[in-house]
Amino acid sequence: MKIKRRTFLQGMVAAGTAAALTNKVDRATADVSDSSYATLIDLTKCDGCPDQDTPACVMACRAENEHKYPEPDPAMLKPYWPQTKFEDWSNKRDVTNRLTPYNWIFVQKVNVEVDGEMVETNIPRRCMHCDNPPCVKLCPFGANVKMKEGPVYINPDICFGGAKCRDVCPWSVPQRQAGVGIYTKLDPIPAGGGVMYQCDMCKDRLAEGKVPACIEECPQEAMVIGTRSEIFAKAEELRQQYNGYIYGDKQMGGTGTLYVSQIPFEKIDEAIVSKADDPEKAMRVHDTPYNVIDNTSHWSSAALLAPVAGAIGAFAATVAVKKRNKQEDAHDENN
């Protein structure tokens, strides 16, 4: 039996129609449960620890995670061929005013003009632990994972240090250290660039029933952790109390970190951008951070359904041909 081009196309049209119909069923899966962990950061309470050289949350994080910090092989601290540079923070471990492989939280200080007055705003910044994290979903080695409990975690044993996670994160949170990780085993093959590091929400402490170190040591109790439902309720309560604003509940399709502020985040964001040496690299609190996963989910749905469409198309085309052949045989017999 031979399938003619017309029949084949009929099959493909049938398959395409089936795909289009099934594609209309919009997915609304939300695997982030209400009982997973979320955190709240109250910007009204956070004062940036003005009496200390380094904010307490930053010091606590460093003390807690010091044993996880990279110890690079000096021989591997060399340019990523054919590039002429490499990323090494091992001799800048004391940097605390930005994210680095040795500093997983920092307090961003910015003066925001409110009703003609300049108000100092302190924003503890670290991984937002997104609900739909592009860093996790696009890592080609599966090194980044989103745990059901809420944390986003990078496995240093698998990470190749390609820094794609940083590129797709609108806040450029993961930071790369050269000279460590699986890529060193491939040397001199020029592949990989180290390991990416970031806040893991102190997942090991959470497993032991403790709160993250930064939260435990905050003297202002500006940071809180709880179940997602508790934190979202608390954030809404504070928002109403302050007649304020929430950041992180809708951005990126939702995150596990909610900031509550009396000052609109648009104003804070404007101040961050205007203060930045390079606005393109500023760690912003913009309303529409770009999530490549959210923005391509319709293509993902189409790709998921396409094999079904192909199978239906082949079935429909073959059945159509068999039916036509049967009719032709009957016609021949009658003649």
Partner: peptide, 25 residues
């Protein structure tokens, strides 16, 4: 990554449809 991801998804849709068509056919 946005561009190559969309290309990958569209090409993947064709690849998946063609393979299943091939098997069933």
């Amino acid at each position: 990554y946005n561009i190559t991801l969309v290309i990958h998804l569209i090409a993947g849709a064709v690849f998946g449809a063609a393979i299943l068509y091939h098997i069933v056919y």
